[in-house]
Design a protein around this nucleic acid. Structure first.
Length: 283
DNA sequence: ACTATCTAGGAGAGCTCACG
DNA sequence: CGTGAGCTCTCCTAGATAGT
């Protein structure tokens, strides 16, 4: 098979965004990665390991791995009087593996670990002779693959901050740095400025205007939380906030009707309402 | 002395909720 | 996707301990 996966097999039939080398990237890759990993696994199992690895090996994508592209977990079980049974599973990092090329290389690397464990029954040292033998087999079959003993990739951080003093940049997957609470850790202790969200290619993401509801949550969160008391679960607080939001919206609408009545305006007719809704694209 | 392993604690990030 | 914040999970690092 080729590395270029498309979503057509899922019946979507859309054009997917690819990078300069024509490979899937970004959200297109995120949608296809599970299926792509399975296809790559089946292909490499056939071509490199002679089909000796289990066809249904557990391959799990996890958002928790942040600095490791992938890991292999080993397990050995044995019943009394029976031969030991060897199990393995692979975990792949959604945060690190954002292109098909990285997935291909990492998956091949982890499959060499799986082969060393399931076929040779050796897990230590992790990158010992057995691992290297399988890695050589893989590189003979796929000369463009570098199945080295570690996989270091540039990790894309969606959020970035910069120190105003030393210009040092910080990246995080979420907006977890608060410039009011945190200072530059490079020794200068400078003020950090939020640079905004960026795409994997480094271009800034389009800024969005927070909705009226977002603003309401921001303004009322602290009040509702203190009224409901410490320890109230987030779900209760958010339910209360949404109720209050609906109530305040209804109150605003009532105020508007009252204003129309006071000014002698007739209530809106069905046609007026329909027209307003059409203008708002609600019909 | 060097290496491997374990543990504690701090940091980072996902999840949860509703709505637009 | 963004809004807020607590809970929970994982990762990373430092320090202690054991083994070679």
């Amino acid at each position: 098979m080729t590395l270029r996966a498309t979503s057509s097999s899922r019946g979507l039939g859309r054009l997917e965004k690819t990078d300069a080398r024509g490979e899937l990237s970004g959200r297109a890759f995120a949608r296809a990665r599970e299926e792509l990993a399975r296809e790559l696994y089946a292909e490499m199992n056939r071509n490199v390991f002679g089909g000796a690895l289990p066809p249904d090996l557990d391959i799990k994508w996890t958002p928790y791995l942040r600095s490791t592209a992938g890991t292999t977990h080993y397990k050995r079980t044995q019943r009394v009087g029976e031969a030991p049974v060897y199990h393995a599973r692979i975990e792949l990092a959604t945060k690190v593996l954002d292109t098909a090329a990285k997935l291909r290389r990492t998956l091949c690397h982890e499959m060499c670990h799986v082969a060393a464990w399931l076929i040779d029954h050796v897990a230590k040292p992790p990158h010992g002779a057995h691992f290297k033998r399988w890695a050589r087999c893989a590189m003979e079959r796929y000369p463009d693959l570098d199945v080295s003993t570690c996989h270091n990739y540039d990790i894309h951080y969606a959020h970035r901050w910069q120190c105003g003093a030393c210009r040092r940049e910080y990246g995080r997957h979420s907006r977890s740095i608060d410039p009011n609470k945190h200072r530059c850790g490079g020794g200068c202790g400078g003020q950090l400025t939020y640079l905004g969200r960026s795409n994997p290619d480094g271009t800034p993401c389009k800024a969005r205007t927070p909705s009226a509801y977002n603003a309401f949550v921001k303004d009322n969160m602290a009040v509702v939380r203190s009224e409901l008391g410490a320890g109230t679960p987030s779900r209760e607080i958010m339910k209360e906030l949404s109720q209050r939001y609906r109530a305040s919206k209804a109150q605003l609408n009532e105020g508007d009707s009252a204003r129309r009545a006071a000014q002698g305006d007739a209530p809106p007719t069905a046609d007026e309402l329909e027209g307003a809704m059409r203008r708002l694209d609600l019909l």
